[in-house]
């Protein structure tokens, strides 16, 4: 069961490298966060630790609903039909993603990281999510997609914390959720301004500052 959930997370991250339109990324991200909420929910069911239930509900509400809504609103205000632009081609990005996934699993097996009884199956995929999120940020040239990569990294970190210590203390977790939300709103505001100033979201257009 856990393996299947982990695979779904992996696939969602790899899918983010394969999309054509920016708007497609939002539903994939919402799906990824939904699966993340499932993992927290499953851990709560197994351990009966109350703060895991809070984390699961918050992930569902904040990451799977509000954040995608904010991103969707931003994209609608800019232009729904924008195509993504990437540094690598579709196939080479898939190849790199697979190599990164293998690396993620390998690194985790070699590090001898401590993990909790029920969280252990998620550890390799959580590290891999961090790797893939970083790659999404490097590979995509559109400003908004870097934000999507950032959220993927954060999702990975959330899962790392779940896997090795059943999450952070609840108050801290709340603070992190709040930060995430503000980050996404500011990414939205800045993307909108970048689009109206440069008439593009391509970050390669923004290269006036050097030296």
């Amino acid at each position: 069961m856990e393996q299947w959930i982990a695979m779904l997370l992996l696939i969602s991250a790899i899918r983010l490298l394969q999309i054509r339109k920016i708007s497609d990324s939002v539903s994939i991200l919402a799906f990824q966060s939904f699966v993340l909420a499932l993992t927290a929910g499953a851990l709560w069911y197994q351990t009966k630790l109350p703060h895991l239930l809070v984390a699961a509900v918050l992930t569902l509400v904040v990451k799977a609903m509000i954040i995608p809504a904010v991103l969707h609103y931003t994209i609608k205000k800019i232009d729904v039909h924008r195509q993504v632009e990437r540094v690598t081609s579709k196939y080479s990005s898939l190849l790199i993603a697979i190599i990164l996934s293998v690396a993620g699993f390998y690194v985790t097996s070699r590090l001898h990281l401590p993990s909790t009884k029920f969280g252990a199956p998620y550890l390799p995929v959580s590290i891999t999510l961090v790797f893939l999120g970083t790659f999404i940020m490097v590979d995509h040239k559109k400003a908004l997609m870097q934000g999507i990569g950032l959220i993927t990294i954060e999702n990975g970190l959330f899962l790392v914390a779940q896997a090795i210590s059943y999450g952070m203390p609840m108050m801290v977790e709340l603070g992190i959720f709040f930060d995430m939300l503000v980050t996404v709103v500011i990414i939205g505001i800045l993307s909108f301004r970048i689009h109206s100033t440069f008439e593009s979201l391509n970050i390669e257009k923004m290269s006036n500052l050097k030296g």
Partner: peptide, 23 residues
């Protein structure tokens, strides 16, 4: 805007790694 975007993205990624450290 270019400076702010670079700052926001680099700052957030950096800080994400710091979170891993805090974990």
């Amino acid at each position: 805007l270019e400076a702010a975007w670079k700052y926001l993205i680099m700052g957030s990624v950096g800080i994400a790694f710091a979170l891993l450290g805090i974990i």
